[in-house]
Amino acid sequence: MSAADLRAMLAADHVTHVPGVYDPASAALAVRAGHRAVHLSGEAVAATMLGQPDLGFTPATQIADRAAVLLPVLGGTPLLADAAIGYDSPHHAVWTALAYQRAGIGGLRLDDGPDATLAAARITALVEQAPQVMLIAQAGGSGPAETIERCRAFATAGADAVLPLGVREADDLGRLRAELPGVPMVVIRSETATGGSRLSDAELADLGVRLVLHPLAAVLAALRAASLTYRAIADEGHATQVDRLPPAVLATLTERPDGPTGRGIDKIDT
């Protein structure tokens, strides 16, 4: 779960897509699909462990506990996790980041909160005292200009990359790249966002984007499939018509692909 692997992705000249995972089965499927990194978001933990929408209250302990469960099936694939609760002060940020590191988390997506000065202080403390965790500094603002200024402050504080919230259009990303040359960018491909263009990977790479996060795509797909299955059982008494993973695969899902019971599973259509 090396932060060095995540930092290498930031140093590359292309985009890496990072899907959200939420349990060992989803993590195993993501790895088998060939993803080089995965993301554990507060939204995913809130939905699958707490049964609630994420309102920014998912405890850091829940995220660390879930990460520890994912660790055995990731096989060294780096794990990026949300960092919001438990990062109130520089001291708390370092303590929580080290707990994340022990749980196998290699990178943090650090929420900035309303106070940019405090956010920069947290970043400085993390860089100095938790260097084995890669740090993506999330930056919000009332508009592109404020978001860019926050990104500048966070990059100066030592963040490995910046995530400009709400900045998705080519012109705004280009402006940020021009003002912060050499600073890797991360963007979220939100399943709830409306409007805006869908830039290609090549266009994103030219604009300085190195990671694209997909925090909820798998959760929403899984819940949709579960909804259809439950409705079919209620209406028909069975779910034969619902497309599902073959039962035989379930028992071997988290086996190593080259293990005695794992042969050929990486070739199934998931």
Rank of each mutant, 00 (worst) to 15 (best):
M1S: 13
S2V: 03
S2E: 12
A3L: 01
A3V: 03
A11Y: 04
D13H: 10
H14V: 12
V15I: 15
P19V: 06
P19K: 08
V21W: 10
P24S: 09
A25C: 13
A28F: 14
A33L: 12
R36S: 11
L40D: 11
S41R: 05
A44E: 07
V45Y: 09
A47K: 12
T48M: 15
G51F: 13
L55S: 04
G56H: 07
F57H: 09
F57E: 04
P59I: 04
P59Y: 03
Q62L: 13
I63M: 11
R66E: 08
R66N: 11
R66L: 09
R66M: 06
A68L: 02
V69E: 15
V69R: 15
L74N: 02
L80N: 07
A81M: 04
A81D: 03
A81G: 08
A83D: 06
A84V: 05
I85H: 01
G86M: 04
Y87Q: 01
D88R: 03
D88Y: 02
P90C: 00
H92S: 10
V94F: 01
W95G: 00
T96D: 01
G106I: 07
G106S: 14
R109P: 00
L110Y: 08
D112S: 12
P114I: 13
D115I: 00
D115T: 01
A116V: 05
T117E: 10
A119G: 02
R122V: 01
T124W: 00
T124N: 00
L126A: 00
E128G: 00
Q132P: 00
M134D: 02
M134E: 07
A137D: 01
G141C: 05
G143R: 09
G143V: 06
P144E: 07
P144M: 08
A145Y: 10
T147C: 10
I148K: 07
I148N: 06
E149D: 14
E149S: 06
A159C: 05
L163H: 14
G166I: 09
G166K: 10
G166D: 09
R168I: 07
D172S: 15
R175Y: 15
A178I: 13
L180N: 12
L180F: 13
P181G: 11
V183Y: 09
V183R: 08
M185P: 04
S190G: 14
G196I: 00
S197E: 09
A205V: 10
A205N: 10
A205P: 09
A205I: 08
R210S: 06
R210C: 05
R210A: 04
L211N: 07
H214N: 06
P215S: 07
A217L: 02
V219K: 08
L220P: 01
A221M: 03
A221S: 13
A225P: 05
T229E: 14
T229G: 11
I233L: 15
A234R: 15
A234T: 11
D235V: 12
E236W: 11
G237F: 03
G237H: 06
H238R: 12
A239S: 15
A239L: 08
Q241K: 13
R244M: 14
L245V: 15
A248W: 12
V249I: 14
V249Q: 02
V249P: 07
T252P: 00
L253A: 07
L253T: 09
E255M: 10
R256W: 05
P257W: 08
D258A: 10
D258H: 10
T261Q: 05
R263V: 07
G264Q: 03
G264W: 08
I265K: 02
D269N: 10
D269G: 02
